[in-house]
Design a protein around this nucleic acid. Structure first.
Length: 379
RNA sequence: GCGGUUGUGGCGAAGCGGUUUAACGCACCUGACUGUGACUCAGGCACGCGUGGGUUCGAUCCCCACUAGCCGCC
């Protein structure tokens, strides 16, 4: 682990127990709780680094599996690492490829040794082991690397989940032993699905390995919200309280609010960028689908409470036009908006925590956004 | 004016007497999207097949007239 990497908890909300902290990384400090935009292929789709600075993005993600296939980790290493490669001056986190074990399920086979993939690009047979994932991530040079884990879908049987959790623990140990980049900090990942004892076993197991940070994984794989919250509750008590906690793949507003309430410090999700590219926006009044006819003549911004470049400069009418004409600018502006919306939400969350009113803040937002409604998508 | 040819939703276009509740594509209208295989996925959108008659148990599909477009020829 890098000496430049450490986590400071600056304040614990007296009302809720939520944490405000600072994560120090070789590429700068970031405040927590935070939301991390996803840039799988060393690019947050449609956004330049300047766009990312403008929305105050802190840590951004890249993906080991995808960069391994294209352009290859040596190409990235040759450029001086993933930050230099894409010219992003902030901190970065690389996912291990574990999620692709889940999302490319028809094209892979899991054994004790690792995962055999069929490339989604050309069908080539590939093998990713814990050691290989770390070797690739070491070359990518992210500030935070993730252990290779298995991310089973939901629901899974107890028997399957148990052996999967045990194997993921063995893989975590191998990842730790394989990690040779002193500038890179490796996070462990807790699995266990919705089973309380397996979450406990997994969390205790990785905590024993003493990682600089811990993730709760196996989330956002088809479970409902109450189940997600249970997964968090089952894991948190066994994760070291002085280390950052990262809830993987979660980006809906209600889940972020509940996650922070339960002691989560880091979130990442493709949701804001993906739905933006599909014309769907998060706003203080709920979801807006910009292609809808009702916005044809609407000269208001996407969200009149938003301070982003998109909302400060463009109307719904124009954005709808751009979207319907398939202009790339629409995807960029809408992505900027959704990311800024979530990042701004995190800023408000941090203030509320420091002022010991996060419990009230969460309740207010849930009411304001109608997130307590049965049909709420948590937009 | 004469001969030929074609008229199916906003557009293109299947079907050519009875499983057509009129295929499909585009456009249009709605949803969805959670460690990105994603400018993706799902759904909706023609009580009617140029108009009017006729043949037939039955007509988008056959016949006649009309009408419109297109191509030739005077």
């Amino acid at each position: 682990m890098s000496e430049k990497f450490y986590f400071e908890i600056k304040h614990i909300c007296k009302q809720s127990g939520a944490r405000y902290g600072i994560l120090h990384t070789p590429h700068g400090d970031v405040e927590t709780p935070m939301f991390m935009p996803v840039g799988t292929l060393a690019s947050v789709k449609y956004l330049s680094p300047d766009d990312l600075y403008a929305i105050h993005a802190g840590v951004i993600l890249a993906n080991t599996y995808h960069l391994w296939l294209r352009p290859g980790e040596d190409v990235v290493a040759n450029a001086g690492g993933v930050q230099a490669f894409m010219n992003y001056k902030g901190p970065m986190l690389t996912d291990s490829g574990g999620f692709q074990v889940f999302s490319l399920a028809e094209k892979r086979k899991i054994t004790e040794e690792g995962v055999t993939f069929k490339s989604h690009l050309n069908g080539e047979k590939l093998f990713l082991s814990p050691e290989k994932s770390i070797e690739i991530q070491n070359k990518l040079g992210s500030d935070i690397a993730m252990c290779l884990d298995e991310c089973p879908g939901y629901p899974a049987t107890y028997e399957y989940m148990k052996q999967s959790v045990e194997r993921t623990l063995r893989w975590a140990k191998r990842c730790k032993e394989a990690n040779h980049n002193p500038e890179q900090s490796l996070f462990g990942i807790c699995q266990g699905g919705a089973f309380e004892d397996l979450r406990k076993m997994s969390a205790e197991g990785i905590a024993q390995l003493d990682f600089p940070g811990y993730a709760i994984g196996g989330t956002s794989v088809g479970e409902d919200k109450p189940t997600l919250y249970k997964m968090i509750d089952y894991a948190i008590p066994y994760l070291p309280s002085d280390k950052p906690r990262y809830l993987m793949g979660v980006g809906s507003i209600d889940a972020i609010l509940e996650g922070v309430f339960r002691g989560v410090d880091m979130f990442d999700c493709v949701l804001p960028t993906r739905i933006a590219r599909h014309g769907s926006l998060m706003t203080s009044k709920g979801r807006v689908n910009i292609r809808d006819k009702q916005y044809e003549y609407d000269l208001r911004p996407i969200d009149d409470e938003c301070d982003c470049y998109c909302c400060q400069n463009f109307t719904r009418s124009y954005l709808r036009h751009l979207y319907k004409c398939d202009e790339g600018l629409a995807k960029r502006l809408l992505s900027i908006h959704n990311l800024r919306f979530l990042i701004h939400l995190m800023e408000e969350i941090r203030v509320a925590i420091q002022e010991d009113r996060y419990g009230d803040f969460k309740a207010e937002l849930i009411k304001k956004y109608g997130l307590d409604q049965k049909d709420s998508k948590g937009f």
